[in-house]
Amino acid sequence: MSASPDTLNRATGLHLPGFARLSCLIAQPVLTRVVQRIAKRHPSMFARLGSHRTTDFLIDPVELPFALHLRPDPQALVLRAVPRHAAPRAGATIRGKFLLLLELIDSEEDGDAAFFSRDLEVTGDTEAVVRLRNALDDVDGSIAEETAEMFGPAGRAILARLRRAYPT
C-alpha cells in the first residue's frame, strides 16, 4: 500500500516549508549535474518522449522533504527540487517511495507491477507517463549507479546505504 506523503512528512517534520526549501537548495547542484550527464550519455531516449519532451512531470518521493520537477526537453532540460507547497502545475505526477522510483528508473522493478500493488501512483497525462517510462526503460545500465559513480566512493557508499535501508 502506498504511504501518504502527508502522514510521513507530518510525523517527521519534513513538511515545514523552511526545511523543504533548504533541502532543495542543497540538492539542486547535484540534480543539475546528474540530469545533464544522463542526457549527454543517453541522447536517444528523448525520441521516445515525442511531444512530451515539454511536459512538466512532478516526481514525488513520498518520504523526502521535496518533490522533483522534470521537464525532459533536450534544448532546455529541467530537473529541480521543489518544496511540495510550491510545486508547479504538472502535466503528470508520479508518486511512490524514493527507492522504488529509483529502481523503476533503473528497471530493477516493473512499473506495471508497482502500479498493480498500489506502491506507485500516477495521475495527470497517462500518455506522458507511458512515454517517460518507455524512454527510461530503453536505457542500458543503471542510472542510479552512473549517478553514484559521479560522486566517487562517497556516492557509491550513499547508494549502497540507501539500498540497505529499504527492505525490498
Binding site: 501518504s4 500516477v122 495521475t123 500518455e127 507517463v129 507511458v130
Partner: peptide, 16 residues
C-alpha cells in the same frame, strides 16, 4: 485502452 484516453484519479480516502 490508448494511454491518451486513460486517466487515474486519486481520492481523499486513498481510493483510486
Amino acid at each position: 485502452s490508448p494511454a491518451s484516453d486513460v486517466e487515474y484519479k486519486r481520492h481523499e480516502d486513498g481510493s483510486m
